[in-house]
Amino acid sequence: ALQAAATVFERAGAVPWLALVSETPAGEGPGPVGGGEEATPALSALTEAELRLARLVSAGASNQEAAAKLYLSVKTVEARLTRIYQKLDVRSRAQLATALRP
């Protein structure tokens, strides 16, 4: 099913959306997560979409900036951040940045 969706997205010129719809938990997909790094056990609870958002926010992006970059609404970013904070047991962006460090 995902392969069929990939073909449709490619034909429509919406390749960025293909990455956003992938909800495979980080660390369960083929190969290393993100930019060639291995996921830590805590990060493996995050989906690929959550991990992308967490990395953007920990790098200093505001909710509005992250929403624009990921083609999401600000409300979606807020909801995902809430889930990310719960999964990683953090309460702030600073703690999130620390949790993402190798």
Rank of each mutant, 00 (worst) to 15 (best):
V77H: 04
Q95A: 15
G34L: 08
G13F: 02
R11Y: 11
E50P: 02
L53K: 00
S58M: 01
Q64I: 06
S58R: 01
L2F: 13
E48D: 10
A39P: 13
Q95T: 13
L20T: 09
Q3M: 11
G35Q: 14
R91K: 15
V77W: 02
A39H: 00
R101N: 15
S92G: 11
E65F: 00
A49N: 03
A49H: 06
G27K: 00
V15L: 12
A67F: 02
N63I: 00
L46Q: 00
T76M: 06
E65V: 04
P16H: 03
A61C: 07
V15D: 08
T24S: 03
L88Q: 05
E37L: 09
S58E: 07
L18H: 07
A49Q: 06
W17I: 11
R80F: 14
K69F: 11
A97R: 02
S58T: 02
K87M: 05
R55A: 07
R101Y: 10
T24H: 00
N63Q: 14
V77E: 07
G34S: 13
W17D: 10
A68C: 01
P30L: 05
S73Q: 11
P16F: 07
V21T: 11
W17V: 12
V74W: 09
A1K: 10
S92V: 11
P41G: 06
A42D: 14
E78L: 00
L53Y: 03
A5F: 13
V21H: 09
L96G: 13
G36F: 03
A79S: 14
A5V: 10
L81M: 15
A66T: 01
E78K: 01
Q86W: 04
A66V: 01
E65I: 03
L51N: 09
A4E: 14
A79G: 12
R80C: 08
G13R: 00
R52K: 12
Y85W: 14
A12M: 06
A54C: 02
A6T: 08
A14F: 12
I84P: 15
L72A: 08
A54M: 01
K75P: 05
A45I: 01
T40R: 14
L81I: 05
T24M: 02
E65T: 06
A59H: 10
V15W: 09
P30Y: 03
E38P: 12
Y71C: 06
G35Y: 14
